[in-house]
Amino acid sequence: MKRVPVTLDVNGESHALSLEPRRLLSDALREECGLTGVHVGCENGVCGACTVLIDGAPARACLIFAVQMQGHAIATIESVARGGALSPLQQALHEEHGLQCGFCTPGLVMTMEAWLKDNPDPDETAIRAALSGHLCRCTGYQSIVAAVKRAARIARERA
């Protein structure tokens, strides 16, 4: 099948690519852009490991074709720690032991970074519901919930 030109705007950098239309965004980000923090866990939209932000909103990179992304701004986990400093959520995940094998971590960080902006003072039930789109096989979620709470508190204190 014929390749088509597409320019991906990822983390503020532009990547001019030539891709088959069927190429999944997750594969293009990993292989063409070298952004291997985008993890592929199910290619069915369930596990959440490949979640990135498209124009600021979380999306499953495995359910989008790269060719669709011309003109959209994509952010991956590689863009979250600015100037080398962990974001409050990343720092809170570190302090609460909110990750073990780390494979699900990038995706859930992307979702919760966006979610915390809309939900600055969430309770545990809301956090758990928001996290339910991310499968973690290691932590039992509890430490992730604690980290999201902590990150929200830090963000509120800074505001």
Binding site: P58, A59, T111
Partner: peptide, 9 residues
């Protein structure tokens, strides 16, 4: 419906 990322798309 689904999860946050699913609802956004």
């Amino acid at each position: 419906i689904g999860s946050d990322a699913i609802r956004r798309r």
